[in-house]
Nucleic acid binder design. Structure first.
Lengths: 145, 145
DNA sequence: CGACAATAAATCGTGTGCGATATAAAAGCT
DNA sequence: AGCTTTTATATCGCACACGATTTATTGTCG
């Protein structure tokens, strides 16, 4: 059916544009921290658990090393992390938060609240919607693998 | 609360990764058409209504001219569209589907079905979820403007 | 032990995305 | 008409994002 090719009915398009919309809301908040959105995600990941590997971060963020390596180099240049080859396995690069990187967490604490406010939804709605989108993501990833 | 900074609870992260997941499912399908995902969106837009302007397309796709201009030039090089300055207003560029661009629609008809299959969800669920995500997008865009 | 496969990052090329700026045309104003 | 402002695209610089490939190291198997 030709009717299938309607942009406004594509859930993928909704997700694609929502992702951009989130970015626009995050931008002014993250500018104050000197981070881009993907950099912020990497920092959140390290705040949760310091000294992760590039590969470990990639699995959690669903990103390739070809994306992460340059991004992490920028975070290192910014002074937020250190990148060190593992002694046990020289192939692996371990990421450590610097003191400045740890301090940045305090300044980032207010960000999630701003995003929730901008979403115009209450916590329950967001939790439910988030779970549905994660389930969708899992189905897509399974299908693509 | 420090507990706020948990990656797995971020709806933005769910949306961000779901968007990438969609891209991975689309890639092999769109490779056959010689299109990237954003190029595909632009073509869908023109299949719905031919002879739109760059600005009009940008409003529908939520993209800037700095993104669209190079993308549309690639579609022109590929032979799917023509870009022509309007006679009435020389500032405006009008986009016309070529015959090849129109023919491509037939080959694209099967794509949405494949995506729905990959999502592992029935039509009703997708319609509902799509509406929720669009509402979220609108709230975010309103907040950012 | 040594060739070979597997693994982890990094590199490279292409294509988005966007903010800031530039360019050119149209519209508005005196 | 002449000058200013607005509007529509285009250009530029930077930062993703990924597939394909490369490099270096580790693991494996005869």
């Amino acid at each position: 059916m030709s009717d299938q090719l309607k942009l406004d009915t594509f859930i993928c398009f909704a997700v694609y544009t929502a992702s951009h919309a989130f970015n626009r809301v995050y931008k002014p908040l993250l500018d104050k921290l000197g981070l881009t959105y993907p950099q912020y995600l990497a920092m959140v990941c390290l705040w949760e658990e310091d000294s992760q590997t590039v590969g470990g971060l990639g699995e959690k963020l669903f990103l390739e090393s070809s994306t992460l390596t340059p991004l992490l180099k920028r975070l290192e240049t910014a002074g937020y992390i250190r990148r060190e080859r593992s002694r046990q396995d020289e192939r692996v690069v371990v990421l450590h938060l610097t003191e400045e990187g740890k301090r940045l967490k305090e300044k980032a604490e207010t960000v999630p609240g701003c995003i929730i406010d901008a979403s115009g939804r209450d916590a329950d709605q967001l939790v439910r919607l988030q779970a549905e989108i994660v389930a969708l993501r899992e189905a897509l990833n399974k299908s693509a693998s």
